[in-house]
Design a binder for these strands. Sequence first.
DNA 1: TTCTTATGCATAACATTCTTAAGTATTTTT
DNA 2: AAAAATACTTAAGAATGTTATGCATAAGAA
Lengths: 126, 126
Amino acid sequence: MHKKIMHIFVIQFRLMKNSQLYKGSLNTIIMKLLEEQGRMYGYEITQKVKEITKGELNITEGALYPALHKLEAEGLLDVEVEKVDNRLRKYYKLTEKGTTETVNRLAELEEFIKNMQTIVNPKLSY
Amino acid sequence: MHKKIMHIFVIQFRLMKNSQLYKGSLNTIIMKLLEEQGRMYGYEITQKVKEITKGELNITEGALYPALHKLEAEGLLDVEVEKVDNRLRKYYKLTEKGTTETVNRLAELEEFIKNMQTIVNPKLSY
DNA sequence: TTCTTATGCATAACATTCTTAAGTATTTTT
DNA sequence: AAAAATACTTAAGAATGTTATGCATAAGAA
């Protein structure tokens, strides 16, 4: 019983960490990971992000899957369905267009980070 | 005529720079500036951000004013109305609660930036 | 062996944040 | 005199994400 309650708290704690700041960065994260890893499936992406951020960022399925579908619809991703251990996996990879676009988005992200650091810490920015 | 068309392009260019990445960071930006400057009015905030980011980030009025109203409603900001040159100005400053909350949000922002950098540039993060 | 957790994907309802656009009003610049 | 800048407001809609639910199989714990 105690164990169950504690587990609920742990889940709560993790979700609370997802502040509004991450809003808008999911697409860039997905594309960067695909650029780096070649190809990945949805669930794998959630685990990878959790690992990289030491559990601080948990991408929810309700955000991830629609995002992947949209990127595919925009021609930025290609998908290949595979059956592993009798379970479906949808592997995504960048198209040529997606690779080009990834460069742009990463540049935007760098600018964003730079601007935010300038705002937060004006002393350090010169 | 040429001048007018060019002006339209300039406006377009600037707005295009506002990528989705900034979504969710407006409150933190406002609070940080108020912590630093003591008190500011809305229009002043838009100009300050434009100046700091060298024109890369333009806070729209449709986002700013509702955000200020909400922060005030949450008890994080106090407002004082003043008339300068026959025009209204609403000066905002952090409440005690707002000052405390600003510390938390800045910490969250630092974590966010760190996580994003780790994702974008995994080599540099150890 | 049965219940739970993990793996794997999908989507609908709702919340939040922001863009776009329109409105009001005064002052300064062209 | 017209346009741009200053200064604030708010409504409609877009974009993004959370929460919740559903389905299905595999692996692990009780």
